[in-house]
């Protein structure tokens, strides 16, 4: 069997053709992205971070799927490091702005829209408007491939970051695992945090929360799973000390 060396023109041609099919040329043109700040994660992502002008999905894991608190904080942390106004499309108003501000997303940057059943049309409307930095929508239930592709195309055209927070009243909802046109899909699960003071574990108090961040789908990249410390006041994730990380991996 003939194996072409990596520099073979045939291979280059094939790669180019695949790229055209996957609309990579559009993506490369607008390949600006926000790095997550954790080197291990950014290395896996094709553009070195959360790509702008693309649709991303985030959900919480387990019983938190309903309220998606961890996923919301994860997203708020990403938005905190962008500049410009953010449109947040809600179904019900259970979001608490002081909590968003604590993750670095200040209230003067967020416009809320209570869209009821029109979550996706309102999100698309927002994505077609060039003045925004990002549009976040909270979607409950199924998301069809066609609907998600509309959002992805709208985001590609305007270069706005589009984020869907997937919520569901039941955890392990199969609807959350169906394929969509989103570029990445994240699952954020809270995990037990180490004691507030490592040298005195019996001291009462709360340290920084810890998350297991799973990248379950990534177009043009490898899925992965990492343990990180939750967002700080500027929205940055933290590295977990090695000792703790190892023990979780072993478990």
């Amino acid at each position: 069997m003939l194996v072409a060396p990596p520099s073979s023109p045939v291979l280059a041609l094939l790669r180019e053709r695949i790229a055209r099919i996957e609309r990579v040329h559009v993506r490369q043109a607008a390949a600006r992205s926000v790095p997550l700040g954790i080197e291990a994660i950014d290395r896996v992502l094709p553009t070195g971070g959360i790509r702008l002008g693309a649709l991303h999905e985030a959900a919480s894991a387990g019983p938190d799927t309903e309220h998606a608190a961890a996923a919301t904080l994860f997203i708020a942390g990403i938005l905190a490091r962008l500049e410009g106004p953010v449109l947040w499309v809600l179904r019900q108003a259970d979001l608490f702005s002081p909590g968003l501000a604590a993750a670095g997303l200040q209230p003067n940057r967020v416009i809320f829209a209570e869209a009821g059943k029109n979550i996706l049309p309102v999100m698309e409307e927002g994505l077609r408007h060039a003045g925004l930095a990002a549009v976040v929508a909270e979607h409950t239930g199924r998301l069809s491939l066609v609907a998600s592709r509309r959002l992805q195309l709208a985001a590609e055209q305007s270069g706005i970051l589009a984020i869907l927070i997937r919520r569901s009243p039941s955890f392990d909802d199969p609807a959350l695992h169906e394929p969509t046109a989103a570029v990445t899909r994240w699952r954020i699960a809270a995990i037990p945090s180490p004691p507030a003071l490592a040298h005195a574990p019996d001291t009462p108090g709360l340290g920084r929360a810890c998350w297991q961040v799973d990248l379950t789908r990534c177009r043009g990249g490898e899925p992965g799973s990492w343990v990180v410390e939750a967002c700080d006041a500027t929205g940055r994730l933290g590295l977990v000390p090695d000792v703790f990380n190892r023990s979780v991996k072993a478990a």
């Binding site: 410009g84 106004p85 209230p107 003067n108 967020v110």
Partner: peptide, 25 residues
Amino acid sequence: IPDIAPLVDRLANRLGESRIYRIAP
């Protein structure tokens, strides 16, 4: 500074003025 007033108008016309807002302390 990008102007988002047109977007706010259109969403307000679609959803109702009270459904599009900011949160202030």
